[in-house]
Amino acid sequence: MRSRLGDVRRLGGLLSVLLLATALSACGQGGSSGESTGEATDNAAFPVTVSTKFGEVTVPEKPERVVALGWSDAETALDLGVQPVGVSDWLDFGGNGVGPWAAGEFTESPEMLGTNEVDYEKVASLEPDLILNTRSDGSGEKHQTLSKIAPTIAPPADTVPYGTSWRQQLDLVSKALGKPDAGQARIAEVERAFSETLSQHPRLQDKTVGVGAYYGSNQYGAYLTGDSRVRFMRELGMTNKPEIDELGSGSFYVDISRERLDVLSADLTVVFAINGSPRQLRQDQLLNRTSAAREDRLVILDDPEVVNAFSSGSASGMEYALQQVAPVFAEHVADS
């Protein structure tokens, strides 16, 4: 309303009556001036330049149609008040493709897109002006193709596939959306949540952890330090068991043969099923013979919603998981 007022004044006294009518109408609608000011502030942030593993990417104007392709990119955008028009559902949430802790933030359902295999034509049909692909496999070929559709924010430099941390993701996405201050504020909120939880459960500090998944067909895997689940544990003061990280590099996980399953045993061991059931895990005799199981240092996550929150790597997902799992972890971690 204030910008219109300046325009009308420049037109002179002849339009004074129109000015009065416009002012009264705007006041009757209520609150529009604050919204206009906020929008003007957002627009003033552009153009913005974001550094990625493929170089600097410039977003020329405030994006109105955002496509979120990367793991938890959609939840991160929602966290910053932006609703993507298209999303990839990495954890098979269904619905709007995000966890229940974020699903209600959509007022209009987004178009559902693929995950590992990108349907470029479908992405282009959404006419995006920004593509978020910050937690992804980091494929140069995919990035080149997506960049022909719209400015594309890739992972940061020197990250393994899907290894973008939640801090890096919030930083990249908030900058691309012209909301860097909001991104930093959100990072501080999550850090505070972890800090407060650790103060409530100090037993977790400086302990080792092994995080594994059961893929079905008697196949297990372990997550490496660059994975979001291990980062979750690190925020709680824990360290990934060194012997696990020695098993692989250049990825976020490594397969483990059943004969070596005890490598997951640490001060705390956390396991969940991906293509199987928690019942199978609990009945697995080999898992039950590991030192972690025998010494009551094994936690099997059996609530799918909690598993997804723990695996999401998004700020809101981690906050949800934190409330559910921290007390259980503290109960089963080894004594000092």
Score class of each variant (00 low, 15 high):
Glu39Gly: 02
Ala40Trp: 01
Thr41His: 00
Thr41Gly: 03
Thr41Met: 00
Thr41Lys: 05
Asp42Phe: 00
Asp42Leu: 15
Asn43Gln: 06
Asn43Ile: 00
Asn43Trp: 00
Ala44Gly: 01
Ala44Ile: 12
Ala45His: 08
Pro47Ser: 11
Val48Arg: 11
Val48Gln: 15
Thr49Glu: 11
Thr49Tyr: 05
Val50Glu: 14
Val50Ile: 15
Ser51Ala: 15
Ser51Asn: 14
Ser51Ile: 10
Thr52Phe: 13
Thr52Asn: 11
Thr52Ser: 14
Thr52Trp: 07
Lys53Tyr: 03
Lys53Gly: 06
Phe54Gln: 11
Gly55Arg: 11
Gly55Asn: 06
Gly55Tyr: 10
Glu56Ile: 03
Val57Cys: 06
Thr58Asn: 13
Val59Gln: 13
Pro60Cys: 01
Pro60Ser: 05
Lys62Trp: 02
Lys62Arg: 13
Pro63Met: 14
Pro63Val: 11
Pro63Gly: 06
Glu64Pro: 04
Arg65Met: 12
Arg65His: 13
Arg65Asp: 15
Val66Arg: 05
Val66Thr: 10
Val67Ala: 09
Val67Pro: 11
Trp71Asn: 13
Trp71Phe: 08
Trp71Asp: 10
Ser72Met: 07
Asp73Ile: 03
Asp73Tyr: 04
Ala74Trp: 05
Glu75Cys: 07
Thr76Ser: 07
Thr76Gln: 03
Thr76Ile: 05
Ala77Val: 10
Ala77Gln: 12
Ala77Ser: 08
Leu78Ile: 02
Leu78Gln: 15
Leu78Ala: 01
Leu78Cys: 01
Asp79Met: 12
Asp79Gly: 12
Asp79Glu: 15
Asp79Cys: 05
Asp79Lys: 06
Leu80Ala: 07
Leu80Glu: 14
Gly81Phe: 13
Gly81Val: 05
Gly81Tyr: 15
Val82Lys: 06
Val82Gln: 13
Gln83Lys: 09
Gln83Leu: 05
Pro84Phe: 12
Pro84Glu: 15
Pro84Lys: 04
Val85Thr: 09
Val85Pro: 08
Gly86Met: 09
Gly86Lys: 04
Gly86Cys: 03
Gly86Val: 04
Asp89Phe: 03
Asp89Gln: 06
Asp89Cys: 04
Asp89Ser: 12
Leu91Lys: 02
Leu91Cys: 00
